[in-house]
Design a binder for these strands. Structure first.
Lengths: 248, 248
DNA sequence: CGCGCCTTTGAAGGAGCTCAATTTAGGTGG
DNA sequence: CCACCTAAATTGAGCTCCTTCAAAGGCGCG
């Protein structure tokens, strides 16, 4: 509740940068900036650029920040005792990263850039502070955490009940939809991740991923050319996925 | 921020009931009661008793509450378009339920009592309100959501990388640990869920669950008698689980 | 242009599923 | 308290989907 000092250094930066971002409607920070009026005194903003394969955070790092993907593509992976690791998610622009660190207060995943990327950094402490003062920010933050719960539960359902064919189909449809929501083509896109990443994410081997994609191509559902994917029969793909809404 | 009217009807009930609960250190509500001092004017408490097989909430219900398991045992399950369903979690006393509803504002799972149970009902709105006024309640609530994320991510890792044998071993060790944390025997307990539930949760068939338990018994790791489980060689069981800490 | 990594494709094997038949347990009413 | 009935659990046999192992091809990048 105590007044926080105005940080003049950031005063200009915040609205300028956010104005150019194009993701206002998704962004917690922008919502905060709006809520706090033109003064924007509660700057909790900073930004990180990452080259492909760079890590945004690592398992074991102290949890201080939630990250907002401004540009690019990330994967998160959970390391296991024995060198093996499991990809637990793919994150594109407008999505939030780092919530795996909230409870244990250290991150328990690695977040790795799959392309050259840019992420906004939210101080968790200030985010919490702000959401105590502002109901709509609080609600938005809760929703972000809730969405992460939803997302992972959807993955559990996929891993628990779907066959390889369905998993791949659902994966493609999910990507397609997320691309579409960002104004890109839903029917033609480039996979930023390797077959290995996909396999790990879906609980399949790289060979199975490859074979299923080949099979889909053979059936005329898609066209594959290395990482370039074209969806030619999205209805057929949805059917292959087992119907049930394709939105997961 | 506006002052909420004191609700005299609940005035006495809260501290009395909570005092008898024995789960104070786990309970958001108690923490709130403590924080608000002896007045306890912010009663957001109510309690529901459920018979076995009764539903605490259903998929599609409006999201209003987070539930705290005071006594008994619950499972949550996600329905799929085609009658099939997947168990997404088991919850015992001291654990929170209902966070699947936060983002979509309706529940997306069913929560079913596996035994006669009792759950405290937290109004989400009042919880949010309270956590705006009180930093430690806020932190605790965030941690609860974070733990749920962690839990489900652990399940993803299990479903994505573990063999049947390991899944069952990890499942038993996880239960054992949670029973131990509640003062019950870690080496002898009764499973409140069916083999079907276990199979669904672990992405296995009922037959595989049954066979693995029989196998463990044959190896002298456990004793099984219907739902009664006795762990005879927890080190061996941990080894079967693939080491990696057994805490997941 | 050559090296490493990613990907594809094939063939064989196995872990877990499906189908089917019994046995057992738990709840109910006589 | 026992008999009954239904749901839950066990066990077996065969099969299948996916993995494992192996080898070759392709792409990107220094």
């Amino acid at each position: 509740m105590q007044g926080r000092e105005r940080e003049v250094g950031n005063f200009e930066i915040l609205p300028t940068r956010c104005a150019r971002c194009g993701l206002q409607e998704l962004c917690l920070l922008c919502s905060m900036a709006l809520q706090s009026g033109s003064q924007a005194e509660e700057t909790i903003y900073s930004c990180r650029e990452l080259k492909r394969a760079a890590r945004l955070y690592r398992s074991g790092d102290a949890f201080n920040s939630i990250y907002f993907v401004r540009r690019g593509f990330f994967k998160t992976l959970k390391r296991r005792g024995d060198g093996r690791a499991q990809v637990t998610g793919f994150f594109m622009s407008g999505e939030l990263l780092g919530m795996d660190g909230i409870a244990p207060n250290i991150y328990t995943c690695d977040a790795v850039a799959l392309q050259d990327s840019e992420a906004c950094v939210f101080s968790y402490v200030r985010l919490a502070e702000f959401s105590r003062r502002n109901e709509s920010v609080q609600r938005q933050f809760h929703k972000a955490m809730g969405s992460e719960i939803e997302r992972v539960q959807g993955l559990v359902a996929l891993l628990g009940t779907r066959r390889a064919e369905e998993r791949i189909a659902l994966f493609l449809l999910n990507l397609s939809q997320r691309f579409a929501a960002r104004g890109y083509s839903p029917s033609e896109f480039v996979l930023p991740m390797t077959r290995d990443d996909i396999g790990s994410y879906l609980g399949l081997t790289i060979e199975t991923v490859s074979r299923m994609l080949a099979m889909f191509q053979g059936a005329g559902l898609i066209r594959v050319e290395s990482r370039h994917i074209q969806i030619r029969d999205s209805a057929g793909l949805r059917q292959t996925a087992g119907w049930t809404h394709s939105t997961k």
